[in-house]
């Protein structure tokens, strides 16, 4: 049975909210998310944010009910100093969000996104890139990093000034591996190497039996195909 356009739209927004909380929202999807009505999606965003914080932080829980998260992101983008942005940009892959194009593209994105809804299941996979175990090419460009967790982690004293730009960087043309920065200590090995992928999989499968955690330890193996596919 075909899903209605409204259902597809809602599913797409829900996925965007999830990706935003996971810090892997693409530039286009952020545009799309920001164009949605606050009231309808704030509750979803807050519940996802609370779950993410509970899973990944030992800090006391932030009371997300006290502030408007989507408005906070909008304020953050509006508060970027123009001097920080580059004159030209060539790429904005994955969670690297090109902020210089943000405002100009804002009004066009919603219509474009709706047109693309019918292909959303396929296109999402190519847009959203796993930040774990992934190497990507980057053109020479200044980019600003914008992360959902940053907005979610600030307390009620958020004022929208200067916060959204985590880093303004000049990327060179060499391949770089994106990962959670705290996870990367050394990157001499290329994880995209087929041989290493095979070894990682063999290890995940065989060690699942040796770690005494039942089928739960197989979670790594089951999700492994998805991770490989995203690459």
């Amino acid at each position: 049975m075909n899903k209605s356009k409204e259902t597809l739209h809602d599913e797409n927004v829900a996925q965007c909210v999830s990706d935003f909380v996971d810090d892997r929202l693409s530039s286009e999807d952020l545009d799309f998310l920001l164009s949605q009505e606050n009231e309808k999606w704030e509750t979803t965003l807050k519940s996802y944010a609370a779950t993410q914080q509970a899973l990944n932080s030992a800090e006391p829980m932030t009371d997300f009910s006290q502030f408007d998260l989507l408005s906070r992101v909008r304020e953050g983008i509006d508060g970027i100093e123009p001097d920080l942005l580059p004159d030209e940009t060539e790429t904005s892959p994955s969670n690297i969000v090109d902020l210089s194009e943000r405002k100009a593209a804002f009004t066009e994105s919603n219509a474009r996104h709706l047109d693309a809804l019918s292909d959303s299941e396929n296109s999402r996979k190519s847009n959203v890139i796993s930040v774990k175990m992934f190497a990507m090419a980057a053109s020479v460009a200044f980019v600003a990093l914008l992360a959902g967790q940053l907005f979610l982690s600030q307390g009620n004293d958020f004022n929208g000034e200067g916060l959204p730009v985590i880093a303004v960087a000049n990327l060179d043309q060499t391949d770089s591996i994106l990962d959670d920065p705290q996870d990367i200590q050394a990157l001499s090995l290329d994880v995209n190497n087929d041989r290493l992928q095979s070894y990682l999989r063999q290890h995940a499968e065989q060690s699942a039996m040796a770690t005494n955690q039942g089928m739960i330890s197989m979670a790594r193996v089951v999700s492994f195909s998805t991770e490989q596919d995203e690459q």
Partner: peptide, 17 residues
């Protein structure tokens, strides 16, 4: 249902036994 998180990655799984 359990969730597995590693770094910024998170996966949810359903288990029956």
């Amino acid at each position: 249902i359990f969730v597995r998180s590693q770094g910024v990655e998170m996966n949810s799984m359903k288990i029956l036994h």
